[in-house]
Amino acid sequence: MDGTRTSLDIEEYSDTEVQKNQVLTLEEWQDKWVNGKTAFHQEQGHQLLKKHLDTFLKGKSGLRVFFPLCGKAVEMKWFADRGHSVVGVEISELGIQEFFTEQNLSYSEEPITEIPGTKVFKSSSGNISLYCCSIFDLPRTNIGKFDMIWDRGALVAINPGDRKCYADTMFSLLGKKFQYLLCVLSYDPTKHPGPPFYVPHAEIERLFGKICNIRCLEKVDAFEERHKSWGIDCLFEKLYLLTEK
């Protein structure tokens, strides 16, 4: 054995408090879109979701699917093309516009009456609605409950000090017999300040354990050449399924 860690023996890093005071403002996230600093976007979609999607959907149609901090995630069109209703929230209007443009979807925009100064973008087909606002303002819009949440790049982007508020927001959107698919990253948080932030299993239990059954479905090596600039040499991604207790 050469000592290389595999996707099945990932350790939890003990120094989980080192990132707790890290803060990125909404304006800084918007600047990332304006300046093209969106390496977190996956042009081909998320491979773990693609692998498990049909198993999760079980042939159902007409589900309501929520994408927190959606950006221009191509997976939104995957669900819409399968007959589901997609709702996303994203602070960057540019990111939302790029989604519709890159997916060749016509759309309209209208003000969100409950949140002055914000807009919702709706596909002409009517099954994709993307709200351009802070996720913490979203419950004011009465958008209803969801059958499924796809959380990739959301919890790991939320400032650590806001995670409890974020989890409570997610709980307010969950319908009966929900499936909450959650991706988190595992790396040494003493070497990279984030975002994306390190979210250990214990944190998921703390945030969601009282209401959800929590199961880790898969762990994969997600390290890429660009991650060397973070000062790390190891990065794993974990896919969790959260269901109603």
Rank of each mutant, 00 (worst) to 15 (best):
A80N: 14
L26W: 05
G88E: 00
V89W: 04
S129D: 07
L53I: 12
I149C: 11
K238E: 15
L182S: 01
D221Y: 06
R82P: 00
C165H: 04
V156L: 05
Q44F: 14
M148N: 01
P193W: 03
E43H: 01
Y13I: 15
P139G: 11
L94D: 04
L48P: 02
S7T: 10
T243R: 10
Q30A: 11
G59R: 08
T190Y: 10
L217S: 05
G3H: 15
I211Q: 15
G83M: 03
E109W: 13
D233C: 15
R163W: 12
H52R: 15
K238N: 15
C216T: 10
T6A: 15
M148I: 07
A80F: 04
T141F: 12
R64C: 09
G231K: 09
Y13V: 11
C183Q: 03
Q30L: 09
F66W: 00
D15W: 06
G175I: 04
G175D: 14
L173A: 02
I128V: 12
T118C: 05
G71K: 03
A80V: 11
Q103V: 09
T25A: 02
E237C: 05
F197S: 02
Q22L: 03
D31A: 12
E244A: 08
K37P: 12
M1W: 11
L235V: 11
F236A: 15
Q19S: 06
D147R: 02
E12K: 02
L207Q: 02
E11Y: 13
A39C: 15
E237S: 10
L8R: 11
R5F: 06
L239F: 15
D162Y: 07
R163E: 01
H52G: 08
V74T: 07
P116W: 05
C132L: 06
V34M: 12
V184Q: 09
P111A: 14
E93S: 13
C70T: 02
Q44L: 07
T190I: 13
A154T: 01
F171A: 13
I115R: 04
Y180S: 00
F223A: 13
A167K: 04
C183A: 07
G62Q: 08
M148A: 10
W150L: 06
T6R: 06
T141G: 08
N104W: 04
Q179A: 12
T38V: 05
L185I: 09
A202G: 11
T16L: 12
S7R: 12
S186P: 04
F100S: 01
T141L: 11
K164N: 15
R64D: 04
E237T: 00
W78S: 06
K228T: 02
H84T: 05
G88V: 00
P160E: 05
K32S: 09
L24P: 06
C70G: 05
A73W: 04
Q44E: 13
C133M: 07
T169Y: 14
A222G: 11
K238W: 11
P200S: 13
D15N: 07
R5Q: 08
G175K: 14
V220R: 06
R206T: 12
D147P: 00
E237V: 06
E17W: 10
E218F: 09
E90Q: 00
W230K: 07
K122S: 09
D31H: 09
R215N: 14
V184S: 14
C133K: 00
C183M: 13
I143Q: 04
H84E: 00
R82M: 06
E218T: 09
G153R: 12
K122A: 03
E237Y: 03
T243E: 07
G144A: 05
T243G: 04
C212T: 12
I91T: 06
E224Q: 02
Y187T: 05
G161E: 07
G161L: 09
S106P: 12
C133A: 12
G36I: 08
E11N: 00
V65N: 01
K60P: 05
D81P: 00
D162P: 00
G45N: 05
K32N: 08
H46W: 12
I112N: 15
L130I: 08
S129F: 06
E11L: 02
Q103L: 05
K58Y: 10
Y198T: 08
T25P: 05
Y198C: 05
Q30M: 12
K177V: 04
F121E: 00
K119Q: 06
L69M: 12
K37S: 11
T38Q: 12
N35C: 14
A39P: 10
S108M: 09
C132F: 02
E102W: 04
E218R: 03
L173G: 01
P193R: 09
V86F: 00
I112Y: 09
E11R: 10
K60L: 09
G88L: 00
D188S: 04
W78N: 04
L241P: 00
G209T: 14
F66V: 01
T4R: 11
E93R: 11
C216A: 07
D137L: 06
M148K: 00
K191L: 12
F136G: 03
L105T: 11
N104V: 05
R5D: 07
I10F: 15
R152E: 03
F40N: 06
S124Q: 15
W29D: 06
P195V: 06
E98G: 10
Q42R: 09
S134K: 10
I10M: 11
R140V: 09
P139Y: 04
E224W: 07
G161M: 14
L241W: 03
L8G: 11
E218N: 08
P116E: 08
S129A: 15
G194M: 07
E205C: 08
S134Y: 03
V87R: 02
S61Q: 05
R163T: 09
K37E: 14
F79R: 00
S124K: 14
N21C: 13
D147M: 01
T113E: 13
T113N: 09
D81T: 10
D162G: 06
F100W: 08
G59Y: 13
L63E: 05
K32M: 10
L173E: 00
A73I: 02
I91V: 14
S92W: 03
E11M: 03
E90G: 06
V220E: 13
K77S: 07
E12F: 13
T4A: 14
N213L: 02
K191R: 08
I143A: 01
H84K: 00
Q179R: 14
D137W: 02
Q44C: 13
Q42K: 14
R215S: 09
A167D: 00
E203K: 04
K50H: 01
S61C: 14
C216Q: 12
T113I: 04
E11C: 13
E75S: 05
L207F: 05
R152Q: 06
L8K: 09
P116G: 07
P139V: 10
I128A: 02
P193I: 03
S229G: 13
W150A: 03
L24C: 14
A202Y: 14
R226V: 05
E114W: 05
L8Q: 03
P68Y: 00
A73G: 07
E75T: 03
W150N: 00
T243Q: 10
Q97H: 12
G231S: 10
V199A: 03
L49C: 04
G71P: 05
L48F: 02
S186F: 13
L207D: 04
C133G: 06
K72Q: 10
L49V: 05
Q97N: 03
K32E: 10
R215Q: 13
D233E: 15
E218A: 12
P68Q: 00
F146W: 00
T190G: 10
I91R: 04
D9Q: 02
P196R: 05
K37W: 09
L235M: 15
C234W: 13
E75F: 03
P196A: 08
E218L: 07
H46A: 10
F146M: 03
G36V: 09
E17A: 10
R82A: 11
I128P: 01
F197M: 03
K210Q: 09
G59C: 07
L49A: 04
Y240A: 00
R226D: 15
G194P: 07
T6Q: 03
D81Q: 09
K77L: 10
W150G: 00
I91W: 11
D233W: 11
E28V: 11
L181G: 07
S108P: 00
K51L: 15
I91N: 02
T55A: 11
L26D: 08
Y240S: 01
S123M: 02
D151C: 00
G144M: 12
Y131P: 00
V89Y: 02
K50W: 07
G59Q: 12
H52L: 15
V34Y: 07
F136E: 03
L26C: 13
F121S: 01
I135D: 00
E75W: 04
